[in-house]
C-alpha cells in the first residue's frame, strides 16, 4: 500500500508528512506530529476527546483520515493560548472547576471555542447542545456549563 504525501497546517505550523491512507487524523496528530493534547476516549466516535477544528469546522478527528486533511488548516488545544496567556475560556474552565482529570478538557475546549466563535452569546440550552458530543466522566458537566456561560457575552 502506498503512502500519501500530505501537507497540513496545525496551529499555524505547516507539516509535510507521508501517511498511510488508513491512518486516522487523531493518530497522525498525536503519534506523527507529537501533539498529544488531543485525546482518544472511545473507538466509536462518541466521546469527542479528539475534537479539533478543521478548516474552521469542529470535527471528531477519529472519524476522519489523515489523508483527508491534506491542505487543511487544523486547530487543536495546543493552539488556543497565546504563549503563556490563556484564552478567557481556558481561564474560565479553571475558575469554575470545569475540569478534574483533564482528559476530556482539550476536546471540550475546542467544542466550546467553536461554539463561541459562531455564537458569542449562547443560551444555556445552546451550550448544552454544543457540548453534547463531548463526554466527561468526572464533572457531571454542570461546572463546564458555568465556565462557558461566564465567557459568553
Amino acid at each position: 500500500m502506498s503512502d500519501h504525501p500530505i501537507t497540513v497546517t496545525v496551529n499555524g505550523v505547516e507539516y509535510e508528512r507521508q501517511v498511510e491512507a488508513r491512518k486516522l487524523l487523531i493518530h497522525f496528530v498525536r503519534d506523527d506530529l507529537d501533539l498529544t493534547g488531543s485525546h482518544i476516549g472511545c473507538d466509536t466516535g462518541n466521546c469527542g476527546a479528539c475534537s479539533m477544528i478543521v478548516n474552521g469546522t469542529l470535527v471528531k478527528s477519529c472519524m476522519m483520515l489523515a489523508v483527508q486533511a491534506d491542505g487543511a488548516t487544523v486547530e487543536t488545544v495546543e493552539g488556543l493560548a497565546d504563549g503563556e496567556e490563556l484564552t478567557p475560556l481556558q481561564k474560565s474552565f479553571s475558575e469554575h472547576h470545569a475540569l478534574q482529570c483533564g482528559y476530556c478538557t482539550p476536546g471540550m475546549l475546542m467544542s466550546a471555542t467553536a461554539l463561541l466563535r459562531e455564537n458569542p452569546s449562547p443560551s444555556e440550552d445552546e451550550i448544552k447542545k454544543a457540548l453534547q458530543g463531548n463526554l466527561c466522566r468526572c464533572t457531571g458537566y454542570w461546572n463546564i456549563f458555568e465556565a462557558v456561560k461566564a465567557v459568553a457575552r
Binding site: 466516535g45 469527542g48 469546522t57 469542529l58 470535527v59 471528531k60 472519524m63 467553536a114 458530543g133
Partner: peptide
C-alpha cells in the same frame, strides 16, 4: 442526530 461534530461532517 448525534452531535455537533457528527452533524458537521
Amino acid at each position: 442526530i448525534a452531535d455537533v461534530q457528527v452533524r458537521n461532517r
